[in-house]
Design a binder for these strands. Structure first.
Length: 263
DNA sequence: AGTACCACCTGACGGC
DNA sequence: TGCCGTCAGGTGGTAC
């Protein structure tokens, strides 16, 4: 789930539940997602509260009062859950931050594909990991500059995290469906006004998904995501949703709405 | 540079 | 019901 809109919901969740409470301890349930040593993580967080949040693309940063930041990446199955210590710990909790009010914040990840680490400066972290500008922060001029210099398939271009951060497999499909562009079409064939339209659609899709809490069940029926299954009926026409493969990723399109260009 | 494919890791799901 | 193959929304590395 965790693409830009999902992580934005996590950020708001952390903002609501995890700030301004002293961290009394860290519980390590599984080490495989840790990119920083346990002692460094504990040293950076324990005894201080989180005082702020930041998000770039699919990355969430939580600022500890002292100065370090906790960096979270959720992989394919990550999420956050704030819970009362007297209740059941969430299943698949891998990393638990305990607060002084007998509540904790669990980093949950079924497949353990995420990352947990410490940085003293998110900007350094972002440049060091070659992460592009956030898809919702990016202005039209920058989007145009990036996309007009790229080659190859449009879906791949949208998902290139080193150029534009936050769009993954699902929302790239959604954006291209709403824009009526076949995901394999060549980015270089789009005219400036088509790129402008793609840019606007990208923003609208991301913002609307956030508005609905990034819950696929809550999205309007006209979204591909509400019909993201092979053989489903296209919400825009009489077509049938089809599954294809791009770079090994399942990709859903309506073959009637999204026509391939002629190479 | 772009694309295809494998690996990471574990569980959910559908078919038999 | 139970076993088994396939697939899953992320990233990173390889080879071409």
């Amino acid at each position: 789930m965790p693409e830009l809109p999902d992580v934005e919901i996590f950020r708001r969740y952390a903002e609501k539940y995890a700030l301004n409470k002293e961290i009394t301890g860290i519980e390590y349930k599984d080490d495989s997602m840790l990119e920083s040593g346990k002692s460094k993580i504990t040293r950076s967080l324990k005894g201080e509260p989180f005082v702020g949040t930041r998000r770039l693309g699919k990355y969430l940063f939580l600022k500890s009062k002292s100065k370090n930041w906790l960096v979270l990446h959720f992989g394919m199955t990550g999420q956050l859950k704030y819970f009362d210590n007297s209740s059941q710990e969430p299943e698949y909790s891998r990393f638990i931050i305990q607060f002084d009010n007998h509540h904790s914040l669990a980093c949950i990840s079924r497949r353990k594909l995420g990352k947990i680490e410490i940085t003293d400066d998110p900007d350094d972290y972002i440049s060091g990991n070659e992460l592009g500008q956030d898809a919702l922060e990016m202005e039209w001029g920058e989007f145009y500059e990036i996309m007009s210099s790229k080659k190859g398939g449009i879906k791949n271009a949208l998902m290139d995290q080193s150029k534009i951060s936050g769009i993954g497999n699902v929302y790239s499909d959604e954006i291209l469906f709403q824009e009526r562009i076949h995901p394999k079409n060549n980015i270089g064939k789009l005219e400036k006004k088509q790129l402008r339209s793609l840019y606007e659609t990208m923003r609208e899709v991301l913002k609307e998904v956030i508005k609905h809490g990034a819950d696929p069940e809550n999205l309007p029926d006209r979204f591909l995501l509400s019909n993201r299954k092979e053989g489903a009926k296209c919400p825009e026409c009489n077509g049938t949703i089809q599954k294809i493969t791009i770079n090994g990723r399942g990709t859903y399109i309506c073959p009637d709405c999204q026509k391939p260009d002629n190479k």
